[in-house]
Design a binder for these strands. Sequence first.
DNA 1: GGCAGTTTCAAACGCTTATTTGAAATAATT
DNA 2: AATTATTTCAAATAAGCGTTTGAAACTGCC
Lengths: 211, 211
Amino acid sequence: MSTQKTTDRLIAAAAPIFAEKGYRETTVAEICEAADANIAAVNYHFGDKANLYAEVWKFLTAAAKAAFPIPENHLEVGAEQWLRLFLRSRLECIFCEDTAGLCPKLIFKEMNERTPKHEELFLSYLKPNRIRVRNAVHDFIGQEIEETQLDLLTQNFMGVHISLNAGYQKHKNDPLHLHKFSKFQNIRPLIDQVETFALGGLKEVRKSLNS
Amino acid sequence: MSTQKTTDRLIAAAAPIFAEKGYRETTVAEICEAADANIAAVNYHFGDKANLYAEVWKFLTAAAKAAFPIPENHLEVGAEQWLRLFLRSRLECIFCEDTAGLCPKLIFKEMNERTPKHEELFLSYLKPNRIRVRNAVHDFIGQEIEETQLDLLTQNFMGVHISLNAGYQKHKNDPLHLHKFSKFQNIRPLIDQVETFALGGLKEVRKSLNS
DNA sequence: GGCAGTTTCAAACGCTTATTTGAAATAATT
DNA sequence: AATTATTTCAAATAAGCGTTTGAAACTGCC
Protein backbone atom coordinates (compact mmCIF):
# COMPACT_ATOMS: atom_id res chain seq x y z
CA MET A 1 0.00 0.00 0.00
CA SER A 2 1.38 3.30 -1.10
CA THR A 3 1.69 6.24 1.20
CA GLN A 4 -0.03 8.55 -1.27
CA LYS A 5 -3.51 9.71 -0.59
CA THR A 6 -6.25 7.68 -2.19
CA THR A 7 -7.25 10.45 -4.59
CA ASP A 8 -3.70 10.65 -5.92
CA ARG A 9 -3.41 6.90 -6.20
CA LEU A 10 -6.65 6.81 -8.15
CA ILE A 11 -5.51 9.46 -10.60
CA ALA A 12 -2.11 7.86 -11.05
CA ALA A 13 -3.64 4.44 -11.53
CA ALA A 14 -6.40 5.65 -13.83
CA ALA A 15 -4.10 7.61 -16.15
CA PRO A 16 -2.40 4.69 -17.93
CA ILE A 17 -5.65 2.75 -18.11
CA PHE A 18 -7.68 5.57 -19.61
CA ALA A 19 -4.77 6.30 -21.96
CA GLU A 20 -4.62 2.69 -23.04
CA LYS A 21 -8.27 1.83 -23.38
CA GLY A 22 -10.20 5.06 -23.53
CA TYR A 23 -13.00 6.22 -21.30
CA ARG A 24 -15.73 3.80 -22.12
CA GLU A 25 -13.75 0.60 -22.10
CA THR A 26 -12.15 1.40 -18.79
CA THR A 27 -14.07 0.17 -15.76
CA VAL A 28 -13.97 1.81 -12.36
CA ALA A 29 -13.45 -1.66 -10.94
CA GLU A 30 -10.09 -2.06 -12.64
CA ILE A 31 -9.02 1.45 -11.73
CA CYS A 32 -9.77 0.78 -8.09
CA GLU A 33 -7.98 -2.51 -8.20
CA ALA A 34 -4.92 -0.90 -9.77
CA ALA A 35 -5.04 1.86 -7.17
CA ASP A 36 -5.45 -0.63 -4.35
CA ALA A 37 -8.67 1.04 -3.36
CA ASN A 38 -12.21 -0.07 -2.82
CA ILE A 39 -14.75 -0.17 -5.61
CA ALA A 40 -16.59 2.75 -4.05
CA ALA A 41 -13.51 4.96 -3.86
CA VAL A 42 -14.00 6.67 -7.20
CA ASN A 43 -17.53 7.74 -6.41
CA TYR A 44 -16.64 8.77 -2.91
CA HIS A 45 -13.65 10.89 -3.87
CA PHE A 46 -14.64 12.19 -7.29
CA GLY A 47 -18.39 11.89 -7.42
CA ASP A 48 -18.33 9.78 -10.54
CA LYS A 49 -16.13 8.23 -13.17
CA ALA A 50 -16.36 11.24 -15.48
CA ASN A 51 -14.91 13.60 -12.89
CA LEU A 52 -11.98 11.29 -12.29
CA TYR A 53 -11.44 11.24 -16.02
CA ALA A 54 -11.31 15.02 -16.13
CA GLU A 55 -8.78 14.99 -13.30
CA VAL A 56 -6.64 12.58 -15.25
CA TRP A 57 -6.69 15.00 -18.18
CA LYS A 58 -5.60 17.82 -15.94
CA PHE A 59 -2.86 15.66 -14.52
CA LEU A 60 -1.49 14.39 -17.82
CA THR A 61 -1.67 17.63 -19.76
CA ALA A 62 0.23 19.32 -16.96
CA ALA A 63 2.83 16.56 -17.00
CA ALA A 64 3.31 16.84 -20.74
CA LYS A 65 3.52 20.61 -20.67
CA ALA A 66 6.13 20.49 -17.93
CA ALA A 67 8.20 17.82 -19.63
CA PHE A 68 8.30 19.43 -23.08
CA PRO A 69 7.82 23.16 -22.71
CA ILE A 70 7.63 25.53 -25.66
CA PRO A 71 7.18 29.29 -25.99
CA GLU A 72 3.61 30.41 -25.43
CA ASN A 73 3.28 31.69 -28.98
CA HIS A 74 5.34 32.40 -32.06
CA LEU A 75 5.79 36.12 -31.52
CA GLU A 76 9.19 35.88 -29.89
CA VAL A 77 10.84 33.20 -31.97
CA GLY A 78 9.11 33.60 -35.30
CA ALA A 79 6.53 31.44 -37.02
CA GLU A 80 8.76 28.86 -38.63
CA GLN A 81 10.90 28.33 -35.58
CA TRP A 82 7.89 28.09 -33.32
CA LEU A 83 6.23 25.54 -35.55
CA ARG A 84 9.39 23.49 -35.45
CA LEU A 85 9.55 23.73 -31.69
CA PHE A 86 5.91 22.81 -31.39
CA LEU A 87 6.26 19.78 -33.60
CA ARG A 88 9.41 18.53 -31.89
CA SER A 89 7.86 18.96 -28.51
CA ARG A 90 4.87 16.90 -29.56
CA LEU A 91 6.94 14.20 -31.18
CA GLU A 92 9.24 13.82 -28.23
CA CYS A 93 6.21 13.54 -26.02
CA ILE A 94 4.70 10.86 -28.22
CA PHE A 95 7.83 8.77 -28.08
CA CYS A 96 8.67 9.30 -24.45
CA GLU A 97 7.86 6.48 -22.12
CA ASP A 98 7.07 8.04 -18.81
CA THR A 99 3.94 9.70 -17.49
CA ALA A 100 4.06 12.58 -19.96
CA GLY A 101 3.93 10.08 -22.79
CA LEU A 102 0.47 9.05 -21.67
CA CYS A 103 -0.92 12.45 -22.61
CA PRO A 104 -0.90 11.99 -26.38
CA LYS A 105 -2.36 8.55 -25.92
CA LEU A 106 -5.19 9.97 -23.87
CA ILE A 107 -5.86 12.69 -26.42
CA PHE A 108 -5.80 10.14 -29.19
CA LYS A 109 -8.39 8.04 -27.41
CA GLU A 110 -10.59 11.04 -26.76
CA MET A 111 -10.40 12.03 -30.41
CA ASN A 112 -13.10 9.70 -31.51
CA GLU A 113 -14.90 8.89 -28.37
CA ARG A 114 -17.61 11.13 -27.13
CA THR A 115 -17.00 11.12 -23.39
CA PRO A 116 -19.21 13.06 -20.99
CA LYS A 117 -16.47 15.65 -20.60
CA HIS A 118 -15.60 15.96 -24.26
CA GLU A 119 -16.74 19.49 -24.84
CA GLU A 120 -15.14 20.81 -21.71
CA LEU A 121 -11.80 19.07 -22.24
CA PHE A 122 -11.71 20.12 -25.83
CA LEU A 123 -12.25 23.76 -25.04
CA SER A 124 -9.83 23.80 -22.13
CA TYR A 125 -6.92 21.81 -23.41
CA LEU A 126 -7.07 21.42 -27.17
CA LYS A 127 -8.65 24.47 -28.72
CA PRO A 128 -6.20 27.07 -27.37
CA ASN A 129 -3.23 25.17 -28.74
CA ARG A 130 -4.87 24.77 -32.06
CA ILE A 131 -5.45 28.46 -32.36
CA ARG A 132 -1.81 29.13 -31.61
CA VAL A 133 -0.77 26.76 -34.34
CA ARG A 134 -3.22 28.36 -36.72
CA ASN A 135 -1.81 31.78 -36.02
CA ALA A 136 1.72 30.56 -36.54
CA VAL A 137 0.79 28.88 -39.81
CA HIS A 138 -0.91 32.05 -40.91
CA ASP A 139 2.20 34.03 -40.17
CA PHE A 140 4.34 31.46 -41.89
CA ILE A 141 2.29 31.72 -45.05
CA GLY A 142 2.58 35.45 -44.71
CA GLN A 143 -0.04 36.45 -47.24
CA GLU A 144 -3.69 36.48 -48.07
CA ILE A 145 -5.29 33.12 -47.63
CA GLU A 146 -8.88 31.95 -47.39
CA GLU A 147 -10.10 31.03 -43.91
CA THR A 148 -10.97 27.55 -45.04
CA GLN A 149 -7.64 27.02 -46.70
CA LEU A 150 -5.83 28.17 -43.59
CA ASP A 151 -7.86 25.79 -41.45
CA LEU A 152 -7.11 23.01 -43.85
CA LEU A 153 -3.41 23.73 -43.78
CA THR A 154 -3.44 23.89 -40.00
CA GLN A 155 -5.18 20.54 -39.93
CA ASN A 156 -2.57 19.11 -42.27
CA PHE A 157 0.28 20.37 -40.15
CA MET A 158 -1.28 19.13 -36.92
CA GLY A 159 -2.11 15.88 -38.64
CA VAL A 160 1.55 15.06 -39.05
CA HIS A 161 2.04 14.43 -35.38
CA ILE A 162 -1.51 13.32 -34.67
CA SER A 163 -1.44 10.51 -37.18
CA LEU A 164 2.04 9.56 -36.11
CA ASN A 165 0.73 9.24 -32.61
CA ALA A 166 -2.11 7.13 -33.90
CA GLY A 167 0.23 4.87 -35.82
CA TYR A 168 2.55 4.59 -32.87
CA GLN A 169 -0.22 3.63 -30.50
CA LYS A 170 -1.27 0.65 -32.50
CA HIS A 171 2.22 -0.65 -33.01
CA LYS A 172 1.31 -4.16 -31.98
CA ASN A 173 -0.65 -4.91 -35.10
CA ASP A 174 0.82 -2.35 -37.35
CA PRO A 175 1.67 -3.93 -40.67
CA LEU A 176 4.74 -1.78 -40.94
CA HIS A 177 7.51 -1.25 -38.47
CA LEU A 178 6.51 1.73 -36.44
CA HIS A 179 6.97 -0.34 -33.34
CA LYS A 180 10.66 -0.04 -33.90
CA PHE A 181 10.43 3.51 -32.65
CA SER A 182 11.44 2.54 -29.18
CA LYS A 183 13.79 3.77 -26.60
CA PHE A 184 16.36 1.39 -28.05
CA GLN A 185 16.59 3.47 -31.16
CA ASN A 186 17.88 6.94 -31.65
CA ILE A 187 14.75 8.88 -32.50
CA ARG A 188 16.53 12.11 -33.41
CA PRO A 189 16.88 11.41 -37.13
CA LEU A 190 13.29 10.26 -37.19
CA ILE A 191 12.07 13.45 -35.61
CA ASP A 192 14.21 15.39 -38.05
CA GLN A 193 12.59 13.60 -40.93
CA VAL A 194 9.08 14.32 -39.70
CA GLU A 195 10.00 17.96 -39.29
CA THR A 196 11.32 18.01 -42.82
CA PHE A 197 8.09 16.52 -44.09
CA ALA A 198 5.81 18.91 -42.23
CA LEU A 199 7.75 22.07 -43.02
CA GLY A 200 8.28 20.90 -46.57
CA GLY A 201 4.55 20.61 -46.97
CA LEU A 202 3.96 24.07 -45.59
CA LYS A 203 6.60 25.61 -47.82
CA GLU A 204 5.21 23.98 -50.93
CA VAL A 205 1.77 25.34 -50.18
CA ARG A 206 3.21 28.78 -49.55
CA LYS A 207 5.00 28.61 -52.85
CA SER A 208 1.84 27.55 -54.68
CA LEU A 209 -0.07 30.44 -53.16
CA ASN A 210 2.45 32.85 -54.61
CA SER A 211 1.94 31.75 -58.13
CA MET B 1 -41.44 -1.80 -45.15
CA SER B 2 -38.82 -2.14 -47.82
CA THR B 3 -38.83 -4.93 -50.30
CA GLN B 4 -35.19 -5.77 -49.57
CA LYS B 5 -34.39 -8.90 -47.68
CA THR B 6 -33.93 -8.48 -43.97
CA THR B 7 -30.19 -9.18 -44.09
CA ASP B 8 -29.69 -6.41 -46.62
CA ARG B 9 -31.86 -4.01 -44.68
CA LEU B 10 -29.85 -4.74 -41.56
CA ILE B 11 -26.54 -4.08 -43.28
CA ALA B 12 -27.79 -0.90 -44.91
CA ALA B 13 -29.26 0.35 -41.66
CA ALA B 14 -26.26 -0.62 -39.57
CA ALA B 15 -23.69 1.03 -41.86
CA PRO B 16 -24.42 4.69 -41.05
CA ILE B 17 -24.92 3.91 -37.37
CA PHE B 18 -21.65 2.04 -36.97
CA ALA B 19 -19.91 4.74 -39.01
CA GLU B 20 -21.35 7.45 -36.81
CA LYS B 21 -20.97 5.93 -33.38
CA GLY B 22 -18.51 3.09 -33.66
CA TYR B 23 -19.01 -0.51 -32.74
CA ARG B 24 -19.39 -0.35 -29.01
CA GLU B 25 -21.75 2.58 -28.76
CA THR B 26 -24.08 1.16 -31.34
CA THR B 27 -26.82 -1.07 -29.97
CA VAL B 28 -28.42 -3.89 -31.89
CA ALA B 29 -31.75 -2.51 -30.75
CA GLU B 30 -31.30 0.72 -32.68
CA ILE B 31 -30.01 -1.10 -35.73
CA CYS B 32 -33.07 -3.32 -35.75
CA GLU B 33 -35.34 -0.37 -35.29
CA ALA B 34 -33.69 1.48 -38.16
CA ALA B 35 -33.96 -1.63 -40.32
CA ASP B 36 -37.56 -2.15 -39.38
CA ALA B 37 -36.72 -5.56 -38.04
CA ASN B 38 -37.21 -7.36 -34.79
CA ILE B 39 -34.66 -7.18 -32.01
CA ALA B 40 -33.72 -10.81 -32.61
CA ALA B 41 -33.03 -10.31 -36.31
CA VAL B 42 -29.33 -9.58 -35.96
CA ASN B 43 -28.63 -12.73 -34.02
CA TYR B 44 -30.84 -14.83 -36.24
CA HIS B 45 -29.32 -13.64 -39.51
CA PHE B 46 -25.72 -12.95 -38.54
CA GLY B 47 -25.12 -14.96 -35.41
CA ASP B 48 -24.07 -11.92 -33.43
CA LYS B 49 -23.41 -8.22 -33.59
CA ALA B 50 -19.75 -8.68 -34.48
CA ASN B 51 -20.54 -10.61 -37.64
CA LEU B 52 -22.95 -7.96 -38.80
CA TYR B 53 -20.22 -5.41 -38.17
CA ALA B 54 -17.83 -7.36 -40.38
CA GLU B 55 -20.46 -7.48 -43.10
CA VAL B 56 -20.84 -3.72 -42.89
CA TRP B 57 -17.10 -3.37 -43.44
CA LYS B 58 -17.27 -5.59 -46.48
CA PHE B 59 -20.20 -3.58 -47.78
CA LEU B 60 -18.70 -0.14 -47.25
CA THR B 61 -15.17 -0.89 -48.41
CA ALA B 62 -16.64 -2.31 -51.60
CA ALA B 63 -18.78 0.79 -52.05
CA ALA B 64 -15.81 3.11 -51.58
CA LYS B 65 -13.61 1.13 -53.91
CA ALA B 66 -16.29 1.17 -56.59
CA ALA B 67 -16.99 4.88 -56.21
CA PHE B 68 -13.37 6.06 -56.29
CA PRO B 69 -11.30 3.51 -58.16
CA ILE B 70 -7.55 3.80 -58.60
CA PRO B 71 -4.94 1.63 -60.32
CA GLU B 72 -4.05 -1.45 -58.34
CA ASN B 73 -0.46 -0.30 -57.88
CA HIS B 74 1.97 2.33 -59.07
CA LEU B 75 3.72 0.23 -61.69
CA GLU B 76 1.69 1.48 -64.62
CA VAL B 77 1.35 5.16 -63.83
CA GLY B 78 4.51 5.81 -61.84
CA ALA B 79 5.00 6.44 -58.15
CA GLU B 80 4.26 10.16 -57.97
CA GLN B 81 1.18 9.96 -60.13
CA TRP B 82 -0.15 6.96 -58.24
CA LEU B 83 0.35 8.66 -54.91
CA ARG B 84 -1.57 11.65 -56.22
CA LEU B 85 -4.37 9.44 -57.48
CA PHE B 86 -4.47 7.56 -54.20
CA LEU B 87 -4.66 10.72 -52.15
CA ARG B 88 -7.32 12.34 -54.32
CA SER B 89 -9.39 9.20 -54.26
CA ARG B 90 -9.28 9.14 -50.48
CA LEU B 91 -10.04 12.82 -50.10
CA GLU B 92 -12.99 12.69 -52.45
CA CYS B 93 -14.30 9.73 -50.54
CA ILE B 94 -13.96 11.58 -47.24
CA PHE B 95 -15.91 14.54 -48.53
CA CYS B 96 -18.54 12.64 -50.45
CA GLU B 97 -21.92 12.34 -48.86
CA ASP B 98 -23.38 9.08 -50.03
CA THR B 99 -22.81 5.53 -48.90
CA ALA B 100 -19.15 5.44 -49.96
CA GLY B 101 -18.50 8.38 -47.67
CA LEU B 102 -19.37 6.22 -44.71
CA CYS B 103 -16.31 4.07 -45.29
CA PRO B 104 -13.70 6.54 -44.04
CA LYS B 105 -15.91 7.27 -41.08
CA LEU B 106 -16.11 3.60 -40.23
CA ILE B 107 -12.36 3.21 -40.56
CA PHE B 108 -11.83 6.25 -38.42
CA LYS B 109 -14.01 4.80 -35.69
CA GLU B 110 -12.26 1.47 -35.84
CA MET B 111 -8.88 3.18 -35.56
CA ASN B 112 -8.96 3.43 -31.85
CA GLU B 113 -11.56 1.00 -30.82
CA ARG B 114 -10.64 -2.58 -30.34
CA THR B 115 -13.63 -4.37 -31.79
CA PRO B 116 -13.87 -8.16 -31.80
CA LYS B 117 -13.07 -8.18 -35.50
CA HIS B 118 -10.24 -5.68 -35.40
CA GLU B 119 -7.40 -7.96 -36.36
CA GLU B 120 -9.30 -9.58 -39.17
CA LEU B 121 -10.57 -6.31 -40.65
CA PHE B 122 -7.18 -4.73 -40.39
CA LEU B 123 -5.46 -7.54 -42.23
CA SER B 124 -8.13 -7.81 -44.92
CA TYR B 125 -8.89 -4.22 -45.72
CA LEU B 126 -6.19 -1.90 -44.40
CA LYS B 127 -2.85 -3.64 -44.51
CA PRO B 128 -2.78 -4.38 -48.25
CA ASN B 129 -3.41 -0.76 -49.13
CA ARG B 130 -0.77 0.40 -46.77
CA ILE B 131 1.80 -1.83 -48.34
CA ARG B 132 0.95 -0.45 -51.76
CA VAL B 133 1.45 3.07 -50.50
CA ARG B 134 4.70 2.09 -48.89
CA ASN B 135 5.96 0.63 -52.13
CA ALA B 136 4.99 3.75 -54.03
CA VAL B 137 6.66 6.00 -51.49
CA HIS B 138 9.76 3.84 -51.69
CA ASP B 139 9.79 4.21 -55.43
CA PHE B 140 9.17 7.92 -55.18
CA ILE B 141 12.16 8.37 -52.91
CA GLY B 142 14.11 6.27 -55.36
CA GLN B 143 17.14 5.63 -53.23
CA GLU B 144 18.47 3.86 -50.21
CA ILE B 145 16.41 4.49 -47.13
CA GLU B 146 16.18 2.82 -43.75
CA GLU B 147 13.15 0.60 -43.21
CA THR B 148 12.09 2.63 -40.23
CA GLN B 149 12.44 5.88 -42.08
CA LEU B 150 10.39 4.56 -44.94
CA ASP B 151 7.67 3.41 -42.58
CA LEU B 152 7.71 6.78 -40.93
CA LEU B 153 7.40 8.57 -44.23
CA THR B 154 4.58 6.30 -45.29
CA GLN B 155 2.82 7.05 -42.06
CA ASN B 156 3.30 10.76 -42.63
CA PHE B 157 1.88 10.57 -46.11
CA MET B 158 -1.08 8.45 -45.05
CA GLY B 159 -1.55 10.73 -42.09
CA VAL B 160 -2.43 13.63 -44.33
CA HIS B 161 -5.75 12.15 -45.32
CA ILE B 162 -6.29 10.21 -42.11
CA SER B 163 -6.08 13.26 -39.91
CA LEU B 164 -8.12 15.26 -42.35
CA ASN B 165 -10.79 12.62 -42.08
CA ALA B 166 -10.54 12.81 -38.32
CA GLY B 167 -10.87 16.57 -38.34
CA TYR B 168 -13.75 16.43 -40.76
CA GLN B 169 -15.66 13.90 -38.71
CA LYS B 170 -15.72 16.07 -35.65
CA HIS B 171 -16.76 19.19 -37.45
CA LYS B 172 -19.49 19.99 -35.01
CA ASN B 173 -17.19 21.05 -32.23
CA ASP B 174 -14.16 21.79 -34.23
CA PRO B 175 -12.67 25.08 -33.09
CA LEU B 176 -11.73 25.91 -36.64
CA HIS B 177 -13.84 25.87 -39.73
CA LEU B 178 -13.43 22.47 -41.23
CA HIS B 179 -17.18 22.10 -41.22
CA LYS B 180 -17.24 24.48 -44.11
CA PHE B 181 -15.99 21.66 -46.30
CA SER B 182 -19.42 20.81 -47.46
CA LYS B 183 -21.10 20.06 -50.68
CA PHE B 184 -21.93 23.75 -50.91
CA GLN B 185 -18.32 24.57 -51.44
CA ASN B 186 -16.09 23.69 -54.31
CA ILE B 187 -13.67 21.24 -52.78
CA ARG B 188 -11.37 21.05 -55.77
CA PRO B 189 -8.97 23.80 -54.64
CA LEU B 190 -8.94 22.29 -51.17
CA ILE B 191 -8.01 18.88 -52.47
CA ASP B 192 -5.35 20.51 -54.60
CA GLN B 193 -3.90 22.19 -51.56
CA VAL B 194 -3.77 18.97 -49.57
CA GLU B 195 -2.06 17.28 -52.47
CA THR B 196 0.47 20.09 -52.61
CA PHE B 197 1.14 19.68 -48.92
CA ALA B 198 1.58 15.92 -49.02
CA LEU B 199 3.73 15.81 -52.12
CA GLY B 200 5.68 18.81 -50.94
CA GLY B 201 6.51 16.94 -47.75
CA LEU B 202 7.65 13.88 -49.66
CA LYS B 203 9.81 15.92 -52.01
CA GLU B 204 11.49 17.77 -49.18
CA VAL B 205 12.36 14.50 -47.48
CA ARG B 206 13.68 13.13 -50.74
CA LYS B 207 15.81 16.20 -51.15
CA SER B 208 17.17 15.94 -47.64
CA LEU B 209 18.11 12.30 -48.21
CA ASN B 210 20.21 13.35 -51.18
CA SER B 211 22.38 15.68 -49.23
C1' DG C 1 -10.57 7.25 26.58
C1' DG C 2 -14.46 9.14 24.20
C1' DC C 3 -16.48 11.32 20.40
C1' DA C 4 -17.26 13.53 15.70
C1' DG C 5 -15.83 13.47 11.26
C1' DT C 6 -13.75 11.00 7.56
C1' DT C 7 -12.57 7.08 4.87
C1' DT C 8 -13.01 2.19 3.65
C1' DC C 9 -15.52 -1.82 2.73
C1' DA C 10 -18.58 -5.67 0.85
C1' DA C 11 -22.87 -6.22 -0.71
C1' DA C 12 -26.69 -4.80 -3.21
C1' DC C 13 -29.17 -1.93 -6.54
C1' DG C 14 -30.53 -0.30 -11.02
C1' DC C 15 -29.78 0.24 -15.56
C1' DT C 16 -28.20 -1.01 -20.19
C1' DT C 17 -27.64 -4.25 -23.65
C1' DA C 18 -26.44 -8.66 -26.24
C1' DT C 19 -28.42 -12.88 -26.59
C1' DT C 20 -31.80 -16.73 -26.07
C1' DT C 21 -36.27 -18.78 -26.26
C1' DG C 22 -40.39 -20.76 -27.74
C1' DA C 23 -44.39 -19.67 -29.90
C1' DA C 24 -46.64 -17.49 -33.88
C1' DA C 25 -46.59 -16.20 -38.62
C1' DT C 26 -45.05 -16.78 -43.18
C1' DA C 27 -43.03 -19.12 -47.14
C1' DA C 28 -41.67 -23.19 -49.64
C1' DT C 29 -42.39 -27.86 -51.09
C1' DT C 30 -44.88 -31.91 -52.22
C1' DA D 1 -54.19 -28.73 -48.93
C1' DA D 2 -50.86 -30.39 -45.85
C1' DT D 3 -46.49 -30.67 -44.17
C1' DT D 4 -42.09 -28.76 -43.49
C1' DA D 5 -38.74 -25.14 -43.29
C1' DT D 6 -37.85 -20.45 -42.60
C1' DT D 7 -38.49 -16.07 -40.58
C1' DT D 8 -40.53 -12.88 -37.20
C1' DC D 9 -41.92 -11.63 -32.76
C1' DA D 10 -42.33 -10.17 -27.69
C1' DA D 11 -40.73 -11.55 -23.59
C1' DA D 12 -37.25 -13.43 -20.76
C1' DT D 13 -32.42 -14.25 -19.61
C1' DA D 14 -27.87 -13.20 -18.35
C1' DA D 15 -23.93 -10.50 -17.87
C1' DG D 16 -21.45 -6.16 -17.21
C1' DC D 17 -20.91 -1.99 -14.94
C1' DG D 18 -21.61 2.59 -12.52
C1' DT D 19 -23.44 3.85 -8.44
C1' DT D 20 -25.54 3.62 -3.73
C1' DT D 21 -25.87 2.06 0.90
C1' DG D 22 -25.15 1.39 5.64
C1' DA D 23 -22.13 -0.55 8.60
C1' DA D 24 -17.30 -0.92 10.06
C1' DA D 25 -12.70 0.96 10.54
C1' DC D 26 -9.91 4.71 11.08
C1' DT D 27 -8.29 9.57 12.28
C1' DG D 28 -7.82 13.74 14.71
C1' DC D 29 -9.18 16.39 18.62
C1' DC D 30 -10.80 17.41 23.50
